[in-house]
């Protein structure tokens, strides 16, 4: 595999996403699943402005070998292999080690799922895998159910970010647990990246407005009618949400509060 660059450098006066000692200018991470073909996938990745791309690792289909997806991921991308398919910490650790040995770098998205109906992550096994892999020098980004205690454990175990789901993987339902995610944003020091469930650019903007440091999107882009344009839409939405968050919102009020002056009307004085 060709040598890839993993994460950019710190730039002065630039609002960057920091994961460990790596810095990114884009706060949109994208997946590579569910695309109609590799060409559309590649163009969508480029259109999204992303700098970090996820992919999966599987036993090859010996009867029907497919092209390696890595050959279609633009070379300047940081790779974030996931451990999908793992049902426990042990399997996730094995997948992570294979990915690193294959030249994917140190980043790993831990995804441990034993529930096949809702595809909800197993926080307990994820904490175990985070601990083991972080101690071996991996930059661990665990995908998790938004639970404060679990997130604290992951942070303590050395995770470089914590990635709570907005709603089940591929459901496009948006952020159904806003309150819980806000708690993680307030209490966890490493970046919170909302992963899974984001179905529309407005959901991505909402996550960023809440104070998430980044979002990870796959299905919403790949399964749209025009993934390349949708990727662009997500790029704008993430930037808009981030700018709005940094600009700080005005007060929410129960009653109306006129934006125009309430004096000098062109009518008879009372």
């Amino acid at each position: 595999m060709k040598k890839r660059q993993y994460g950019g450098i710190l730039m002065k006066n630039k609002d960057q996403l920091q994961l460990g000692d790596h810095f990114f200018n884009s706060r949109l991470l994208v997946g590579t699943g569910k695309y109609e073909n590799h060409d559309i996938m590649k163009k969508s990745i480029e259109a999204s402005g992303t700098e970090m791309v996820t992919m999966a690792l599987r036993r090859g289909d010996l009867k029907n070998p497919k092209e390696n997806v890595l050959n279609f991921i633009p070379e300047n991308m940081t790779l974030l292999p996931n451990t999908s398919g793992a049902r426990n910490a042990e399997e996730a650790i094995r997948i992570a080690k294979i990915a690193r040995a294959a030249g994917c770098g140190n980043f790993i998205k831990i995804e441990v799922i034993s529930d096949q109906k809702y595809l909800l992550p197993d926080n307990y096994e994820t904490i175990k895998a985070t601990k083991a892999l972080a101690s071996e020098g991996f930059h661990v980004l665990p995908y998790m159910s938004p639970d404060l205690m679990a997130a604290k454990e992951m942070e303590k175990a050395g995770a470089k970010a914590v990635m709570p789901l907005g709603s089940p993987i591929g459901s496009n339902r948006g952020i159904e647990n806003k309150g819980l995610i806000k708690i993680l944003i307030n209490e966890i020091k490493v970046p919170i990246i909302v992963d899974a469930g984001i179905g529309k650019p407005s959901h991505a903007a909402e996550a960023m407005e809440l104070g998430a440091k980044a979002v990870l999107v796959n299905t919403a882009i790949a399964a749209s009618k025009d993934p390349i344009e949708m990727a662009r839409a997500f790029d704008y939405a993430v930037k808009a949400g981030r700018l709005a968050y940094l600009s700080k919102f005005g007060e929410v009020k129960a009653r109306g509060d006129a934006s125009s002056p309430l004096t000098g009307f062109l009518r008879k004085e009372q």
């Binding site: 569910k34 992919m55 999966a56 070998p65 497919k66 990870l216």
Partner: peptide
């Protein structure tokens, strides 16, 4: 022997 490949995923 495991013959492993990278596939699209999120």
């Amino acid at each position: 022997l495991e013959l492993i490949t990278f596939l699209g995923g999120g």
